[in-house]
């Protein structure tokens, strides 16, 4: 079993405009990237559970030459709403680090 935080050398998140968040997972090497490129543990339903987003709108785009996967999804609420806790979405990645990739 391997966690996201173990097989990635860098994970980051950021708003992509006020209505979307994008998460970048940079894998430690090509082999790990190939192994987890299509891992079901990173399926839209996982993001729906972790981020209260609509699984139908989750976009997953692997970038082969950078050994990374970009996953983008609509914010549960637009940036800056009354209950905002992370204006830039810069810490939203943290809850992914413990996800088991299998």
């Amino acid at each position: 079993m391997s966690k996201v935080g173990e097989v990635c050398r860098h994970v980051r998140s950021k708003n992509a405009g006020p209505f979307w968040v994008t998460v970048d997972l940079f894998f430690r090497n090509e082999e790990l990237f190939r192994r987890y490129r299509d891992a079901p543990a990173l399926a839209p339903e996982v993001f729906a559970r972790l981020y209260e987003t609509d699984p139908k709108l989750v976009k997953r785009l692997p970038v082969d030459n950078l050994h990374m996967i970009k996953i983008s999804f609509p914010r549960a609420k637009p940036q800056g709403w009354m209950g905002e806790r992370d204006m830039h979405g810069g810490q939203l990645y943290a809850r992914l680090l413990d996800v088991e990739l299998g």
Binding site: K14, N15, A16, G17, W20, T22, D24, K59, L61, V63, N65, L66, M68, K70, S72
Partner: peptide
């Protein structure tokens, strides 16, 4: 090449 190509990822939903 990596720092330049990685910037297409930055704050955008689609890297391509």
């Amino acid at each position: 090449p990596e720092s330049v190509s990685a910037h297409m990822l930055y704050e955008s939903t689609d890297p391509f």
